[in-house]
């Protein structure tokens, strides 16, 4: 049993750099695998709808008539299931997290017109 067992740590902490970062000024560097948010490359997307069927929370909605792909950012749990199942590999997991917001928002992406004309 000792009385000053923590003194060494305490002293070192007085003279060492803080372990925390000065956050907004010093941005966080994410590791490569961080599951932040999903992005879709609409040019490559064929709107097959596999991602929306695979999504465990039903966050993705694909509308073929409107040629749109929508994701509810606040329902998404960043599991990466859609990225794995995407046949065209147009979905990708990006590092930065979804920004907090006052409302639950849905991001809608539509397939570029020119591209679809070329394809058809």
């Amino acid at each position: 049993m000792s009385l000053f067992s923590f003194a060494k740590t305490e002293f070192r902490n007085l003279f060492s750099k803080p372990v925390t970062r000065l956050y907004p000024q010093e941005p966080r560097i994410y590791p490569e695998r961080t599951r932040g948010h999903i992005e879709n490359d609409m040019n490559a997307c064929i709107l097959c709808g596999l991602c929306s069927r695979k999504c465990p929370t039903g966050a993705i909605r694909v509308d073929r008539k409107e040629k749109s792909w929508a994701i509810s950012r606040f329902s998404c749990i960043q599991c990466g299931c859609c990225v794995e199942s995407c046949p065209k590999k147009c979905l990708s997991m990006k590092q930065a997290y979804t920004q907090p917001g006052a409302e639950k928002k849905t991001d809608v992406f539509t397939k570029p017109e020119a591209e679809s004309k070329n394809a058809s």
Binding site: F6, T9, E10, N13, V19, Y30, P31, E32, R33, T34, R35, I77, Q78, G80, M93
Partner: peptide, 26 residues
């Protein structure tokens, strides 16, 4: 301060988790 020291150490593990799995908790 002992609490903060323990959690500082834990942070390293969480960073390792993020590097290997992509998530810190889930």
């Amino acid at each position: 301060s002992l609490f903060m020291q323990s959690w500082r150490m834990r942070e390293k593990i969480l960073d390792m988790f993020e590097t290997s799995t992509g998530g810190r908790v889930i």
